[in-house]
Design a protein around this nucleic acid. Structure first.
Lengths: 272, 272
DNA sequence: CAATGTGTAAAGCTC
DNA sequence: GAGCTTTGCACATTG
C-alpha cells in the first residue's frame, strides 16, 4: 500500500482504484471508502431495482454497511445493504464495478461506474455508540422514553385524577398484556386502571387502535373497568374519531414540554 | 471560481473550502458537495442530539437534502435535514463549520470540523426520478402494487372460492370505507364480500388490526356478512392469534411468486 | 395543508 | 433467533 489513509484519488482509472483502494476495503481492519462518479446500479433481493446513469456517491463502512446515494436528491439512498455485508471491487470492460452482498440474507447491489470523479479512503475512528464513555458519545433527548418518565413522575399533570405510581415506577411502565406491552399503567382516584399509550409525534388511527387493544386485553385479563389515555402532542382527526367511538381519551404532551419541566427545580420544589 | 466541478480538495484548510466550495454550495444552480473529516455535531429540532468527535461524511445535495454519516457504521445518518433545507459554510475559531437548516420546520444541524480530510464538488446530473423517459430511470419490482395486481388477475390462486372482479378491476382495488382504504375487495362464490389486505413483508398484529377495522367498517356500512383475508409472505405468531380470535383468514403470497407468475405466458395460456 | 399507508424500511430491545 | 415498537422515521398519494 503506497498511501496511508486518509487519501484521495481524483479522476482515477479503474485500475488505480483497484490497486490503491481495494486493499483498505477488503483488508483487516477495514477502512471507510467513498467513491463518487457516474454510474448505473442494479439491486436483487427482497425486491429488485434498476437505476439508470447518474452521478452517485457510494459509501462502504467498516461495519459492512453499504449505501449508494444519488448526488442530486433524496435523504434515502438509491440502493443499500445494511451490515453485515461485504463489498468487492473489480474492473469489467474498462469500468469499475462495485459489488455489495449481504451476509445474512440474499441481497446484492451491483454498481457499474462509467466514470469515477473521486475515490477516497478515510481514517478509522469510532462509531456513534450511545455508550456514554465512548469517545464519540451520541446522546439524544426529547424521546418517547423521556415522555414516559415524565408521565410517571408527574401523572397529575397529564390528568388530575391520576395517582402517582405505587411502589417502584418500573412496575408501571412497559406492562405486558395479551395484546402487547403498554407504555404506562396507573390508577386513578376512583381506583380504575388507566392504560396510557405515548406517542412523540401526532398520533394517528393506528395509535388509537393499539391503545384499544391494550385496554381490551387488560379488561379481559383483570376483569375490572379500565380507562385508556393516549398521550401525544396532537392527534389526527381520524384518531380522535376512533378514540371517541371507543370511549378512549387523549391528553396533550409535547416532547419539548418534558425537557422544559426537567430543566430545573420547579416553583413547587420551593413551596413544598 | 478557479475550478470547475468535479474537483477534489485533499486536506484543505477551512479557508480553502470556504473559497472554493462554498460558491457551488450556495450558488444557483447548486452542486453536490461532499466533505469528510473529524467533526462533532449538534442537532436541535423535533428532538435534540449531540454527537462527539468522529470521522464523518457530510453530503449536501442540490435539492436541499443534507445528511451526515458516521464513517464507521450504520445505514442511517447521524444527523440529517430532508429537503427543503439550506446549508451554509463558515469558519469559527480555525474550524470549518457547516450549518444546515430546514426551511419548512425549525430544525437545525451544526457540524464543526476539527479536521477536513477531503472536500469535493461533483457535477450535476439527474435525480432518480421514476419517470420512465428520464435518463436516470429508476424502476423497482416485487412491490406491494404488483402483489395487488396479481391478486386481481388471479384471485382463485389466493383462495379457490374467490370470484374474478366484476367489471373494471380498478373498482376492486383501493376501495374506500369509513376506516380507510382497503387494498382489494372481491366477492366469493357464496356472494360474500371479501376484504383483502396485502403486505409484502411478514405481517404483524398491526396489519391484522388494520384488516379488522376495514372488515368492521364494511359490515357496518353495507350490512352484509364480510370475510377478511390477509395476504402476506408470512405472519407473526401474534398476528395469527389475532386473526383467529376475530374470525379472519390469511393466505401466503410472496413478492417473488408474483414476478415468476408474470414473467411469461403460463402453460394455461397455450392450453386455453 | 392534513391524513393515511408503504418501505428492500432500519434500529433497538426483549424473550 | 422471533416478535414488537419506535424512528428527529422518509416518502408518495390523495383529499
Amino acid at each position: 500500500m503506497t498511501e496511508e489513509p486518509p487519501f484521495v484519488l481524483e479522476s482515477p482509472s479503474p485500475e488505480e482504484v483497484l490497486r490503491k483502494v481495494a486493499p483498505y476495503l477488503h483488508g483487516t481492519p477495514r477502512y471507510p471508502v467513498v467513491i463518487a462518479g457516474m454510474c448505473t446500479a442494479r439491486y436483487e433481493g427482497r425486491a429488485s431495482s434498476k437505476a439508470g446513469p447518474a452521478v452517485r456517491i457510494a459509501i462502504c463502512k467498516p461495519d459492512g454497511t453499504f449505501i449508494l446515494h444519488n448526488a442530486m436528491e433524496k435523504r434515502e439512498p438509491t440502493n443499500w445493504n445494511p451490515a453485515p455485508s461485504v463489498q468487492r471491487l473489480r474492473t469489467d470492460g474498462g469500468n469499475l464495478v462495485l459489488v455489495s452482498k449481504r451476509l445474512d440474507v440474499p441481497e446484492t447491489v451491483i454498481v457499474t461506474f462509467e466514470d469515477v470523479h473521486a475515490a477516497m479512503v478515510l481514517p478509522r475512528s469510532v462509531g456513534d455508540s450511545r455508550a456514554s464513555n465512548a469517545p464519540s458519545a451520541f446522546t439524544i433527548s426529547r424521546t418517547h422514553e423521556e415522555m414516559v418518565r415524565y408521565i410517571l413522575e408527574n401523572p397529575s399533570r397529564i390528568d388530575p385524577s391520576l395517582l402517582p405510581p405505587e411502589g417502584p415506577p418500573e412496575r408501571h411502565t412497559e406492562v405486558e398484556c395479551g395484546a402487547g406491552i403498554a407504555d404506562v399503567v396507573l390508577r386513578d382516584e376512583k381506583g380504575r386502571l388507566v392504560v396510557i399509550e405515548v406517542k412523540r409525534a401526532r398520533a394517528d388511527i393506528n395509535a388509537a387502535a393499539q391503545l384499544k387493544r391494550y385496554v381490551d386485553a387488560f379488561r379481559e385479563e383483570r376483569g375490572e373497568s379500565v380507562r385508556g389515555i393516549l398521550v401525544a402532542p396532537d392527534v389526527t382527526k381520524g384518531c380522535e374519531k376512533y378514540l371517541r367511538k371507543h370511549g378512549l381519551e387523549w391528553r396533550r404532551l409535547r416532547p419539548e414540554d418534558v425537557e422544559r419541566a426537567e430543566e430545573g427545580p420547579t416553583l413547587d420544589d420551593f413551596l413544598g
